[in-house]
Design a protein around this nucleic acid. Structure first.
Length: 601
RNA sequence: UGCCCGAUGGUGUAACGGUAGCACAGCAGACUCUGAAUCUGUUUGUCUAGGUUCAAAUCCUAGUCGGGCAACCA
């Protein structure tokens, strides 16, 4: 199959890459090391793709690495189903681009542990740059990193913090603690002795207390202007089985405590996240700086998350669409999930091009979905095999063409990639054309077929519409046309200039195929504008299912290939497709300036 | 309300004290055996007010508007 090379896009530049470039120039770190740390509590979406392309793009451009890490510190919300889908999505998006930058770890690998001069250190280096085949050959099983891999180490760090007098066990009930924090009041348990804190924290770990009765808090500043510095909670009791560690723990670290330490343990240099974590950065730094760690510390940088018009991105709301069966599942082709986008027929390449085009800033804007659509079309135009298929058939009989005759005509597979060659398309007396390509009363500038008018049938003849046949109800059933039999490629009148060219299929040879015509899921650019319920603006026409007539070669269509049904849209084989029942998803329509002109009238 | 962050055409971005550029969208045209693609042209912009400077999108101050945070979520 054609495999267009990565377009020679200029290396992107943005404020984060500028920082990394400066660090590289001054040799601040031995190696640039980023990470992509999703929580396995939902499916990845196109917003995550922006982050993946940033983190792996940086690794790629600066000769570094990027770890895939499950940020799994809240077993109540997480599930193994999500860790599996995340791995699949990341592998797909990285394929042919940055898989050699992906940092993974061996199964059962544990952090290297050292204590030097009373300083504790844990380090978990990645395995990287191995292909699937190499891994199989070496019989090593690689998997993502997990924050839960470090629960022992993170626990040790918490103990270290207690010993330094920088953390304490707090017995305040949740609502009271919130109240104290809001008002900048010190917890009455703030000044417990190190020994008592150590004892209590150990007993928390040993399952002596029920959920919610005690927490471990960092001892920073009771009335700091930044609320995240007001003695934040770093460990809570939660009696829940964890998808990775099972029943081993009944206490789990909070995000703020686990994240910076996971970054440190993995040797991350640039910890890139979205803007809402900006106010957490002082806490990120405080924890690492308080622990007296021997290796270089990671630093956090924030960028604006992606918002797309006609799209919702919140995991919770996507889950709602799935749970309420408003879509068919997480991989519904109308969803902005990576699995949905993939099923729709969008390539990883197109998504990466999109990610590069939108840039990285700290401004919370709304990206026009047209930018995405443009990236998809550009990619598919290069790679898609052209085919003839009719979505809404209208029968045409060529009255001067011999009955029973079959001509095999040469059709170009992809004019953008001439080396993909040709295929044969059968032409006969009875054909189907697109219903929309005929108008009994043509609007102005209509240069498709009309009574008495002429059009070119692609790769075949110029035909003239002689007669319009209707049934008793007055419904159009058939067109009777004559062909200029000298007008096909190489013929005497092949050079005739006819304004319109139509796609068609031979009625006798056509294969039936289910086509799923997807459109935007919402009718409004901002589904949640002014607090309106996004479900109130669902597009009732986001999916239309038809049975199309396709040229015979479509029977051999395969899932890896992309197709353009000429003059209509790009399609891909759906995973529901069977040899006995073909199913195609419409990825995206071709640009249609005629539709726009016709609408304007 | 407090704290933090941001603001460049319709949208997204670049310009790092010295000619406001690019992409998408729009519009007009050329070409076309895809009303696609391709090509050409083109409309539209530095939030406001002060200040610094020979010179400000850029630096400073204030304001306006927008976003985020104030979970035993991440």
């Amino acid at each position: 199959m054609p495999n267009p090379v990565e377009p020679a896009a200029p290396a992107p530049s943005d404020f984060i890459r500028d920082i990394v470039a400066a660090h590289v120039a001054e040799h601040k770190y031995p190696r640039v090391h980023t990470r992509f740390p999703p929580e396995p509590n939902g499916y990845l979406h196109i917003g995550h793709a922006k982050s993946i392309c940033l983190n792996f793009g940086i690794a790629r451009e600066f000769g570094g690495l990027c770890n895939l890490r499950m940020d799994d510190t809240n077993p109540a919300k997480e599930d193994i189903e999500y860790v599996e889908s995340i791995q699949a999505d990341v592998n797909w998006l990285l394929g042919g681009w940055a898989e050699d930058r992906l940092g993974l770890k061996q199964h059962d690998q544990t952090p290297e542990t050292k204590t030097v001069d009373g300083k504790i250190d844990f380090y978990m280096p990645p395995v990287f740059g191995t292909s699937e085949a190499e891994r199989k050959h070496a019989a090593i099983q690689l998997e993502p990193f997990y924050a839960s891999d470090y629960f022992d180490q993170i626990y040790e760090f918490a103990v270290a913090l207690i010993k330094k007098g920088k953390a304490f066990v707090c017995d305040l009930p949740p609502d009271q603690m919130d109240d104290y924090r809001r008002n900048g009041k010190a917890s009455p348990f703030r000044d417990r002795s190190v020994a008592e804190n150590l004892d209590l924290f150990t007993r928390m770990k040993n399952d002596e207390f029920p959920d919610g009765t005690r927490v471990l808090r960092a001892k920073i500043e009771v009335d700091a202007a930044n609320i995240w510095l007001r003695d934040p909670l770093i460990y809570r009791i939660k009696h829940a089985d964890h998808h990775q560690t099972g029943g081993k723990w009944c206490i789990y670290p909070m995000y703020d405590f686990a994240h910076c330490l996971s970054d440190y343990i993995e040797g991350i240099t640039h910890s890139i996240c979205t803007l809402e974590f900006e106010v957490h950065r002082p806490l990120y730094d405080w924890i690492l700086e308080s622990l007296d760690l021997p290796r270089p510390l990671p630093h956090q940088y924030e960028f604006a998350r992606l918002s797309l018009s006609y799209t919702i991105m919140s995991k919770r709301k996507l889950m709602q669409l799935v749970d309420e069966n408003l879509v068919t599942g997480w991989d519904d082709p109308r969803l902005p999930t990576l699995s949905g986008i993939r099923r729709r027929g969008v390539t990883a390449q197109a998504l990466r091009d999109f990610a590069y085009h939108i840039g990285i800033t700290k401004y919370n804007g709304l990206t026009d979905v047209a930018v995405l659509e443009h990236a998809i079309r550009e990619d598919l135009n290069q790679r898609a095999q052209r085919r003839l298929a009719v979505l809404r058939p209208l029968k045409v009989v060529i009255t001067n063409y011999p009955e029973g005759q079959v001509e095999q005509l040469n059709a170009v597979n992809n004019p953008e990639q001439p080396e993909t060659g040709h295929r044969q398309v059968p032409f006969t007396r009875e054909l189907y054309i697109e219903r929309d390509d005929f108008a009994e009363v043509p609007p102005p500038k209509f240069f498709r077929l009309k009574p008495g008018g002429e059009v070119r049938l692609k790769y075949a003849y110029v035909i003239k519409c002689e007669e319009v046949i209707k049934d008793a109800a007055g419904k159009l059933t058939e067109l009777r046309c004559t062909a200029d039999l000298d007008s096909k490629m190489g013929g005497l009148t092949a050079g005739r200039k006819v304004k319109g060219t139509l796609h068609w299929v031979s009625a006798a040879h056509a294969v039936d195929a289910e086509v799923r015509l997807y459109d935007r899921l919402f009718t409004e650019a901002e589904p949640e504008q002014d607090g309106r319920d996004f479900k109130s603006v669902l597009n009732p026409h986001s999916l239309e299912v038809l049975t199309a007539k396709g040229e015979p070669s479509l029977a051999e269509a395969n899932a890896e290939e992309r197709y353009q049904f000429e003059r209509l849209a790009y399609f891909t084989v759906d995973l529901d497709s069977q040899p006995s029942k073909l199913v195609f998803n419409r990825t995206i329509t071709l640009k249609d300036t005629w539709a726009k002109a016709a609408q304007k009238g």
